[in-house]
Write a protein that binds this DNA or RNA. Structure first.
Lengths: 130, 130
DNA sequence: TCTCAGTTTAGAATGATTCTAAAGTGTTGA
DNA sequence: TCAACACTTTAGAATCATTCTAAACTGAGA
């Protein structure tokens, strides 16, 4: 709890009640994938009612501070990943199946980067079917 | 024109005026990336006014028939790609920069596919910065 | 404790996409 | 050629995730 406050402070985030609850849930040690909606639902199960606006704000604040990764898996909604290491995903739209690929993936054969640009990150999504 | 009609028929798509115009634009030989909105704008420039609903319907019909690829680059909107070959992308959100990587990319080091699933496709997105 | 910038919130607004149901149009068989 | 119908198109409403607004609230420092 004080750890969480300290953690938030060290990321220039004022440790408000809501942020403490959200960080406590997200950064409990196990990697998680959440959407604003799923996070709201999970917190509600734990009797923590936080407005959706705040959940969106907080996810973005955390993202802006590098505490979360943003995933673009579908255009329906945005997923955030608590695992901010360089990694990739297995994903299946139908089953809402989404798991990390932590093993080191090698992407080779890339052409040279377009003029005046630099690579920010490489995202590999392995789309699965049943 | 009759080619297009034939092309549509061979894909179980009734060759309506609108589909002929859209297919004529999309499959003119040059690879294209479009969104419903951008397609609508391009057609309008060519004096072809087609309702957005029809544009959405048609993009989906073409997609369902394998004439287009769907790209998930951002959660803001859906991109369709007329290049249906196995290929990947350089993408920059800020600049709306999006180009194909046609060169063969090799993705190695993938862990084994989760039980009872099979790989549908592998999508590599190289996110760029200025 | 006082003060205020930073936060939270309900509810409205936005914007891409989908839905509805009514009007229009290829296609087919006679 | 044409009737008849299933398939399409369309305007406008509806949906849904997300963002915005502006008012109330609350950490943090003095």
């Amino acid at each position: 709890m004080n750890d969480i406050k300290q953690f938030l402070r060290s990321n220039d985030l004022r440790p408000t009640k809501q942020r403490i609850v959200i960080a406590g849930y997200l950064f409990d040690g196990t990697d998680k994938h959440v959407t604003a909606e799923s996070l709201s639902t999970e917190l509600a199960k734990r009797k923590h009612i936080i407005s959706l606006a705040t959940i969106y704000n907080t996810l973005h604040d955390f993202y802006e501070n590098g505490l979360l990764k943003k995933l673009t898996l579908t255009s329906d909604r945005v997923y955030f990943d608590t695992n901010t290491d360089d990694h990739h995903h297995f994903y299946s739209e139908k089953d809402q199946f989404l798991i990390d690929i932590n093993k080191n993936i090698e992407v080779s054969g890339l052409p040279k980067t377009p003029k005046n640009k630099k690579i920010n990150k490489i995202e590999v999504i392995v789309h699965l079917d049943k």
